[in-house]
């Protein structure tokens, strides 16, 4: 949404991200998509070569994109196996009680924040 507002005000943007479905749905002007775990959108930690290449792809897309909602997918992979893709927000049967408790704590914290006036003005 921030990228959209910047574009509406004359500033060209590119989003480098790993959540394709969210970026596509939002109508993002330009996206460089890296199929990596959330947390390292530019490249693997300490892999300067991959990170540099990502930025080169991003600038290339900035210079060459001619229409909105252009998504370029990098060739990078986290690892040859895609097993890692199961982990994020994974729900296992034995986690049900823990997740329910997390939700209760989250709701409790939000109510506490509201009561303390910890909200945006």
């Amino acid at each position: 949404m921030t990228a959209r507002t910047l574009e509406q005000n004359g500033i060209s943007t590119i989003v480098i991200g790993s959540a394709w479905d969210i970026l596509e749905r939002c109508g993002t002007p330009r996206v460089l998509y890296n199929d990596l775990p959330l947390g390292n959108p530019v490249g693997k930690p300490f892999d300067l070569q991959m990170q540099t290449k990502t930025m080169q792809y991003a600038l290339q897309l900035l210079a060459e994109a001619s229409e909105p909602a252009t998504i370029l997918e990098s060739p990078f992979q986290w690892q040859s196996s895609s097993a890692w893709k199961q982990h994020f927000m994974e729900i296992k049967p034995e986690m049900r009680d823990t997740l329910r408790q997390m939700g209760e704590e989250n709701r409790r914290q939000r109510a506490h924040n509201r009561a303390q006036g910890l909200v945006r003005k």
């Binding site: 949404m1 574009e7 210079a63 909602a69 997740l99 939700g103």
Partner: peptide
């Protein structure tokens, strides 16, 4: 995945992600 995760935490209302069909574009 996010929807399923927060449902499992007992949230009754799903988050509604921003959705736009028209996209602004400022050429370089």
């Amino acid at each position: 995945r996010t929807r399923d995760y927060y449902r499992a935490q007992g949230f009754e209302q799903d988050y509604t992600w921003a959705e736009n069909t028209a996209t602004p574009f400022q050429p370089l």
